[in-house]
Structure formats: structure tokens, C-alpha cells
Design a protein around this nucleic acid. Structure first.
Length: 743
DNA sequence: CTAGTCAGGCTTTTT
DNA sequence: GCCTGACTAG
């Protein structure tokens, strides 16, 4: 089989480049990842490099998984399995798991996820009486995170503002607490690996010798720690192969620095550069639109993107009245495209700047009875019930994880209230031990041992009994976890805690939460051959896009512009193109941040293969208040000849030719057709094509239709349009009551 | 100790 | 307009 057959000459050149440092600068849709994948396959197949001596690094699990699948096809399962292939974080997690003791870490460390990290910061701030309303814990945390990514340790942190002073006071205890809990946060995974290599040259040498070739995807997104890691890894063989697109650098806020590309040129004077300019994804009009937007950024290498996919359609720009009508418009277009057989539902994606914007869209899809896939928002592993169960599992592995312990010590309620927890925490702090050790001491005191020994926390008899029961339960898991699979342990946790009964309280929400638990159970079952540590580490490092597999669901995808990177869709909608939203308010006063917003827009536009719709609303609600909104400056950068108006397009001061729909959209509230008499009344039984039977709770006329709030027997309370409803005979008051409670 | 109500604050983006 | 955290009644 000829590996190189599907590649163009530019791509071939990159794939077969000679050894040494190499930078592939490439535009969107140019087959960057494909080049990287083929390079790996080519090294193994043509150059006879043993797969275990190749290390390929990506930013998302999804990218890693896709690359692995392709390599399985190209090289066969056995050889693909030998490759080191994963995200930066996962790769470091594995190295640290192996080398933990060398730098004084425990092999069983747990990874603190974003929530855990901020919770810890909040707790420390409170302990130091720092007002967590004046200074947001997440801001403090991200300052700490930035420092860590720059490899600035707590003792060298130099604050220059009062806020910085707060950060300095939290940074050190934050690190201490992490270590006391045997925990690492995301940044630690990178930083500690770098430290490992710096402080232990003999360990570094092993990896440097082993990895003959190191390859990196999305190099423009690397931060300082990641860059140093790569430099350390490639110190011996210097075979660093990276692909990058400066114009798609959108993670500056979490420490990514596209100047690492310049740094690379400096540190590797013999760096070779390849350019990939042909685009295989989009039509020329879409590329031109993207170019028109990105061209305004300084400090970039201008690329001439071209495509052979033809001129294609112009971008459609639409001004809606508000977010709700914007969402309705998007849904209408999708329905239209489907009806005209121009696109399948699954071909469409709707992208936005902030997760909060998904709500209006979801409602519009629900009302239309259309399915959709939502990426992000509340991530699966951030859900309360999942975090609870993960906390139990973490305790089984490491009961000293006080954060997890405090989280679940009273879940489901077992008589250990805030008062008791505080006593336990105080005792732990006073004695410099973990909360678990205090729990152990309390348990050892019951049932008959003489009360109030100096060592035990001052707890009531009742509290002692409750704490002891909890202790015995967890102690059982600690023993068990060595012997059984993660899935079996999870089963045991579920039975011991009675978690199912606790969740399934008869409410709709409870059922949904229980379904999430079942999903977690299914995931755990896949780890039959792995340890609990492996399972927990993976769980902490997956993101939501990762679950966006090529499932057979034919539904539009809703996602943030950030999650959209690396994906492509025939039809793309970008909504909320307004000043303050894209670009976001928080970026307006910083030129660097503004440039990044522009790149974000660029990423969005270049996801589209054939059709691009850009919408903005004339007013938008913020904190429940409506405020007027002006079109994004990025819209003004698109030349008129690339735009097709639909009649109501306002781009800055330019107004396109107005069509017949102007009146409707320009003055939507001006003269609503006199509201028709409501067709549905409270208490009436109805059926909906997707939600089934239900009872009308309330109904009021909308502009063209009627908004009906229905308590569905199965689906809970929803707001739907009358046109989707049918009156039905039987009545079901029980459903209505239950629905009401959910609301 | 729990479950319910209320006020206030908040919204970028994610490994 | 939604969620979190604080407060109150049982």
C-alpha cells in the first residue's frame, strides 16, 4: 500500500522531510493532522522506526483518538498500540505515574479538576478572611495557573497589584493543600513533569533516548510548560515535528503563547519550515470571508489560501430582533435546508461565543421538535451526581483526599451536618493531619471506649455513631479496591450508599441524573483490565467534545467556537456576532485579547465547507435586562461582494438592499397581528409528536402562533408552540401536578 | 439536621 | 434570568 498516495506534493514533502526540527505552517482545512498522522506511519513503515520510539502529542483526547484510529488502519492494531499517543496532560500523567517517587509524589495521586481547583482556592480565601465576592476565586485561581504555566513557584511570585498580593497569599497554601491531599491540578501535570526532567537528568535521559521522534499537533496552543517539556523530550535526537496555524491560536487566556513558534525558530536554528496553503474543506467564498477577517491582525505570516472546491455560495448575514428570534431563524433555515434536501440535520452546526447562548437555541430546537447535540455546557464529568460518585471512588483509592471526603461525607444525608464537618476539619487542621485521620480517630473511640480522650474531636455521641458508620463503609472500599475492577467497586459504592434511591426521588430530574450514573457505570465497565487510578485519571482529563463521536445521530450540533476547533461541517451558523459578545467585552480594552477574538471568529468561519450563516441580534438580554446590541466589527470587515443579504441585513453603517421581509424583522413589535384567541386552555389534555401526552399549564398568544406551557407525562414541563400540539381526549391530572413540581 | 425560601451575584472561552 | 449560598422553620 502506498502511504503517500492520498497526499498532494506539499503534504508529501512535509511527511517525508528529513530528520531534524521541522515546522509545518498550515492554514485551516489543509490536512495538518493528516500530515502528522502520515508522518508517524511513514516513520514506522518506511524508516523502520520502532513505534514505541515515537511520541505524538495532541491537545484533545478526540484528536488523539482519531489519530490512533487512522494509525490502526495504516499500521495495524499491534504496532499502533505501541505508539505513545495522547494529549499533553495524559502523556504527562502517565510519565508521572511511573516516576512519581523520584520527585516525592505518591503514585496514587488524584487529579483535581477545574471545580476542585476553584473550590480549594475559595476555601483558602475564606480561611484567610479574604472576601470572595470582591475577588473571585476563579480569577485568583487562573492567576495562580498562569504563574504555574510560566514555572514561577510560589516563593518567586512577585505581585504588582493588590490583587496580585491576594494571589500571592493563596498560591503557596494552595500548593500545600494540593500536596497534602495527594493531588495534582492540570498545571501540575505539566510543571511537575518538567521539574522531573530538570532535576533528574538520569530520568530525562531515558525518555530523551527513547523518543527518536516527537510530533505535536496544534503547536500554536502550547504554553511555556509544554514548550519546555517538548524541548526536554527532544534534547537528544532533536527530531521535533510540529504543525501549527498561528491564526488559530485561541488559548492565550490559559497560557498558550503562539510566540512559541518564534521561540522554536530561535532555539532550533536549523528549523525547516513547510507551508500548506491548499484548503480541502471550504469553498473559495468562505475562505475569502475568513481571510478578510483575519487580515486585520498584525504579526502573522500571510498565507494565500486556495481551494479547488469552487467559488461556492456567499455568506448569509442576518439581523434578528433578539436572541429568541435569532434562534428561531436558525432553526427555520435548518428545516428549510433539510426540506430542500440541501443538507442533513447532522451536517449543520451552530456556534457561539459563550455557553450561555445555547439556551435560546435549545429552546428553539425543542419547540420545533428537532433533535440536537449539545457540546459543553455542563460537562458530563462536572455533573453533581458524577462528581459525587467519583469522589467516593477517589476515597477508596486515597482516603486522605479531604476535598472528596468533605464533599460526600454526608451524601446521601446520614446525619453528619455542617457543624460536625467543621469540627472534623478544625481537628484535622489543628493536628496537621487529613480529615480521614480524624474520622478514623473518632471511629476508634466508639462504641465503648472512654469518651473524650485528648486526641478525639469533641463530637456528640450521635455524631460519632454517624461518622463511624461512614468510616467503616469507606474502609471497606479501601480494602476492596485492590481486588476488584473499577466497575465492581462502583457497584459496591452504589449499594453501600443507597445512592440510587437517593437520586431517584420520582422527579424527572432524578431520572436524568440516574441515567448519567448508568452512563458512568458503562464507562467504568470498559476499564476491566485497568486500575482505579487509570480510570480516575482518564475521567479527570476528558472533555465534552471527546464524546462527540461519529454517532449515528442525525442532529445539528450546538457548540462554542472554542470547542469547534478541529471540526468541520457543511453548514455553519455563527450566532451572536455583536460587539461585547464577539469580540467579548472582556477583550475590548486589550489589543492582544481582541486579536484573539478575531482568530476565534476566523476559526468559526473556516469550519464551514459549503454554507455560512452569520447572525446578530439588535438587542440582547444581559442578566435578564435587555440592552441594545450593535453588530460585531468583524462583520464590517467582510466585503459586500461576499455577502448575500436576506433582506434585513445591517452591517455597521452599510445597509444592503432591503427585501420584502424587512418590515417583519425591522419592527417586530410594531404591529403584531391582533392576537388570535387562544386555542388551548389550562387543564386541557394534549399530545406532542415528540413529548407525548401532557396537560396544558398555561397558554398565551405569540406573534404568529401560541405559546403553550405543557406538563408532559414523560418529558416534564416544556414550553411549546401550539402548532405542534394536538388536543386529546383523556385527562391526566397526575402528570400536571408532577410537572408543576419540577418547575 | 433537613428542606424549603429568598437575596444577591454573576457570564468568556477549557485541558 | 439562573444558580449559589445564607437564612428560617420544622
Amino acid at each position: 500500500m502506498d502511504l503517500l498516495a492520498p497526499l498532494n506534493p506539499q503534504q508529501k514533502k512535509a511527511v517525508t522531510a528529513s530528520d531534524g526540527p521541522l515546522l509545518v505552517l498550515a492554514g485551516p482545512g489543509s490536512g495538518k493532522t493528516r500530515v502528522l498522522t502520515h508522518r508517524v506511519a511513514w516513520l514506522v513503515q518506511e524508516r523502520q522506526v520502532p513505534p514505541w520510539r515515537v511520541c505524538a502529542v495532541t491537545f484533545t483526547n478526540k484528536a488523539a483518538r482519531e489519530m490512533r484510529t487512522r494509525l490502526e488502519n495504516l499500521l495495524g492494531h499491534a504496532r499502533a498500540a505501541e505508539l505513545t499517543l495522547g494529549t499533553f496532560h495524559a502523556t504527562c500523567a502517565r510519565i508521572l505515574r511511573r516516576e512519581a517517587e523520584t520527585i516525592g509524589l505518591s503514585r496514587d495521586y488524584v487529579i483535581f479538576d477545574a471545580d476542585d481547583q476553584v473550590t480549594l482556592v475559595r476555601r483558602l480565601m475564606r480561611e484567610q478572611n479574604i472576601d470572595d465576592r470582591r475577588f473571585s476565586p476563579s480569577a485568583v485561581h487562573s492567576a495562580i495557573s498562569r504563574a504555574k504555566n510560566e514555572l514561577i513557584p510560589p516563593e518567586s511570585y512577585q505581585p504588582s497589584t493588590y490583587f496580585g498580593e491576594i494571589v500571592r497569599r493563596i498560591y503557596e497554601p494552595y500548593q500545600q493543600q494540593l500536596r497534602a491531599n495527594n493531588g495534582l491540578d492540570f498545571d501540575d501535570l505539566l510543571v511537575e513533569t518538567v521539574r522531573l526532567f530538570q532535576e533528574h537528568p538520569e530520568v530525562a535521559a531515558r525518555y530523551q533516548e527513547r523518543y527518536l521522534h516527537t510530533l505535536v499537533d496544534e503547536f500554536q496552543d502550547t504554553n511555556m510548560a509544554q514548550y519546555l517539556l517538548l524541548r526536554a523530550l527532544t534534547a537528544r535526537h532533536r527530531n521535533l515535528f510540529v504543525v501549527a496555524d498561528e491564526d488559530q491560536s485561541i488559548y492565550r487566556w490559559r497560557g498558550a503563547d503562539y510566540r512559541n513558534i518564534a521561540r522554536l525558530r530561535q532555539d532550533y536554528p536549523d528549523l525547516m519550515t513547510c507551508l500548506l496553503e491548499q484548503n480541502y474543506r471550504s469553498t473559495q467564498n468562505i475562505l475569502d470571508t475568513a481571510q478578510a477577517i483575519i487580515r486585520h491582525n498584525r504579526d502573522r505570516t500571510e498565507k494565500q489560501l486556495f481551494t479547488e472546491r469552487g467559488q461556492g455560495l456567499k455568506a448569509v448575514i442576518h439581523e434578528a430582533y433578539d436572541a429568541e428570534e435569532e434562534a428561531d431563524w436558525v432553526v427555520e433555515r435548518i428545516v428549510e435546508l433539510k426540506a430542500a434536501r440541501k443538507a442533513r440535520l447532522g451536517d449543520c452546526a451552530v456556534m457561539y461565543r459563550t455557553n450561555a447562548q445555547s439556551r435560546a437555541l435549545e429552546e428553539a430546537f425543542l419547540q420545533a421538535g428537532l433533535p440536537y447535540r449539545l457540546v459543553g455546557a455542563t460537562r458530563f464529568y462536572a455533573r453533581r451526581e458524577i462528581k459525587d460518585l467519583i469522589a467516593f471512588l477517589r476515597l477508596a483509592q486515597n482516603p486522605s483526599d479531604s476535598a472528596s471526603l468533605v464533599r460526600v461525607i454526608n451524601l446521601p444525608p446520614r446525619g453528619i451536618g455542617a457543624q460536625t464537618i467543621e469540627v472534623l476539619e478544625d481537628a484535622a487542621r489543628a493536628r496537621g493531619v487529613s480529615v480521614w485521620q480524624v474520622v478514623e480517630a473518632a471511629a476508634a473511640r466508639s462504641p465503648h471506649s472512654p469518651a473524650r480522650s485528648a486526641d478525639s474531636p469533641p463530637l456528640s455521641e450521635r455524631a460519632i455513631r454517624a461518622v463511624t458508620a461512614f468510616h467503616n463503609m469507606v474502609a471497606g472500599w479501601v480494602v476492596l479496591h485492590e481486588e476488584v475492577t473499577p466497575a465492581q467497586l462502583l457497584e459496591r459504592v452504589l449499594t453501600d450508599t443507597g445512592y440510587e434511591a437517593y437520586l431517584r426521588d420520582g422527579s424527572q430530574e432524578g431520572e436524568e441524573r440516574w441515567e448519567n450514573v448508568l452512563e458512568l457505570r458503562a464507562v467504568a465497565a470498559e476499564y476491566a483490565g485497568a486500575t482505579l487510578s487509570d480510570f480516575l485519571a482518564d475521567v479527570a482529563l476528558v472533555s465534552d467534545v471527546d464524546n462527540l463521536t461519529e454517532e449515528a445521530v442525525d442532529a445539528p450540533t450546538l457548540l462554542t467556537l472554542h470547542s469547534a476547533k478541529g471540526l468541520e461541517f457543511p453548514v455553519v451558523f455563527i450566532v451572536g456576532l455583536e460587539e461585547g459578545l464577539l469580540p467579548h467585552v472582556r477583550s475590548l480594552d486589550d489589543p492582544e485579547a481582541l486579536a484573539e477574538e478575531r482568530r476565534l471568529m476566523y476559526v468559526g468561519v473556516t469550519r464551514a465547507k459549503e454554507r455560512l450563516y452569520l447572525t446578530h441580534a439588535s438587542r440582547r438580554s444581559r442578566y435578564g435586562e435587555y440592552e441594545p446590541s450593535t453588530p460585531s466589527r468583524f462583520l464590517e470587515d467582510i466585503p459586500l461582494e461576499l455577502i448575500e443579504g436576506d433582506g434585513a441585513v445591517v452591517v455597521g453603517h452599510r445597509r444592503l438592499q432591503a427585501g420584502s421581509r424587512v418590515a417583519a424583522w425591522d419592527s417586530p413589535r410594531a404591529a403584531p397581528p391582533s392576537p388570535p384567541a387562544p386555542r388551548f386552555q389550562r387543564g386541557q389534555s394534549v399530545t406532542h409528536p415528540s413529548f407525548g401526552p401532557g396537560i396544558v399549564v398555561e397558554s398565551h398568544p405569540d406573534r404568529n402562533d401560541e405559546q403553550v406551557v405543557v406538563a408532559f407525562t414523560r418529558a416534564g414541563v416544556k414550553r411549546v408552540l401550539a402548532s405542534y400540539l394536538q388536543a386529546s381526549e383523556e385527562s391526566d391530572t397526575k402528570g400536571a401536578q408532577r410537572g408543576k413540581r419540577v418547575r
